[in-house]
């Protein structure tokens, strides 16, 4: 037993668990249960057959992967899945690139009207999506973008929120890093890409996760802008399972379970970059 363990143990005995702590933990636990239960039911339902869907036991009587076979062998599902991947990946990359480019410019360059530009971008945050859908639709239809990937993606290629987030983070990057690169002869674009961007990876990962999740689950706009089934994204495709024939809950749940996989992958890949406090190591103080 290392001295450290011993002191930990001693501390446990000396300070009995505080009642407030128990309350906090209980609340957190209940919150966790509320969050996790629907996911468990989703998984459980996906393993049941149609006759057992309304049997609310969590562990299915005869669990089987038949639903998965059906869904995965249905060409439509794979198509929708692919559509969602294409849309979410493109929009995420575009956001990571353009939001941070604009955020960096607003944070690190002094120019006339800078504050005004920032305010203008910020003010768009106050307009709800529902109000924008009709203008978007009119715009898309006059450009001939209805029922195309670009039509689904264009409203989200840059977001005010992402720009704001990146601006705030770039403001914490000390100027000396950029100046050192400037003196070493790099041009401004390379400085942004090679020096500033790596310093804000936590923010970039957070932005990427938010954007990916947001677009992966987006329903309203893709529903409006697409007509042909081949262009449906996953959420719309899944909901079309529901209206077609009788609602096939087990199929919807199977599709939904499969749909969580990419979000998990994205999260697991990116969350390790959300480590704070890397930046200060390069400076004195």
């Amino acid at each position: 037993m290392s001295p450290n363990d011993r002191s930990l143990k001693a501390r446990h005995q000396a300070f009995p668990i505080h009642p407030g702590r128990i309350f906090t933990w209980t609340l957190l636990f209940l919150g966790g249960v509320v969050m996790v239960t629907p996911i468990l039911f989703m998984l459980s339902t996906s393993l049941k057959d149609a006759s057992q869907v309304y049997d609310l036991r969590l562990i299915p009587e005869a669990p089987s992967l038949d639903n998965y076979k059906v869904v995965l062998s249905d060409g439509r599902f794979l198509r929708w899945f692919l559509n969602s991947v294409i849309v979410a990946v493109c929009v995420t990359l575009s956001n990571v690139f353009f939001d941070s480019l604009v955020g960096y410019t607003l944070a690190k360059f002094q120019f006339r009207g800078r504050y005004l530009v920032f305010l203008a971008i910020l003010s768009t945050l106050m307009i709800p999506t529902e109000m924008l859908v009709i203008p978007w639709y009119l715009m898309a239809s006059s450009f001939g973008w209805i029922d195309s990937y670009w039509g689904i993606m264009f409203p989200g290629m840059m977001t005010a929120f992402g720009t704001f987030l990146m601006k705030q983070f770039f403001e914490t990057v000390p100027d000396e890093f950029l100046e050192a690169a400037r003196v070493d002869g790099l041009n401004e674009f390379t400085i942004w890409w090679r020096v500033a961007m790596p310093l804000v990876t936590p923010a970039l990962s957070a932005l990427a996760i938010f954007t990916f999740l947001g677009n992966w689950t987006a329903f309203f706009w893709p529903l409006i802008v697409t007509n042909s089934r081949e262009l449906y994204t996953l959420p719309i495709g899944l909901s079309s399972f529901a209206v077609e024939q009788a609602i096939q809950w087990e199929m919807i749940m199977t599709g939904a379970s499969l749909a969580t996989i990419p979000t998990l992958i994205v999260f697991l890949l990116l969350q390790r970059y959300i480590v704070r406090g890397v930046m200060l190591a390069g400076l004195k103080g």
């Binding site: 890093f177 050192a180 003196v183 070493d184 090679r194 020096v195 790596p198 190591a281 390069g282 004195k284």
Partner: peptide
């Protein structure tokens, strides 16, 4: 600055935290 071909060492170092020592030194040769 990039057109003056001057090397500068900053008062607060300003070495890049996301690069190794070798990469940092090599960055002068970018």
């Amino acid at each position: 600055p990039k057109d003056r071909n001057i090397a500068m060492v900053f008062q607060n170092y300003a070495i890049y935290p996301h690069m190794s020592v070798a990469q940092n030194i090599g960055f002068g040769l970018y």
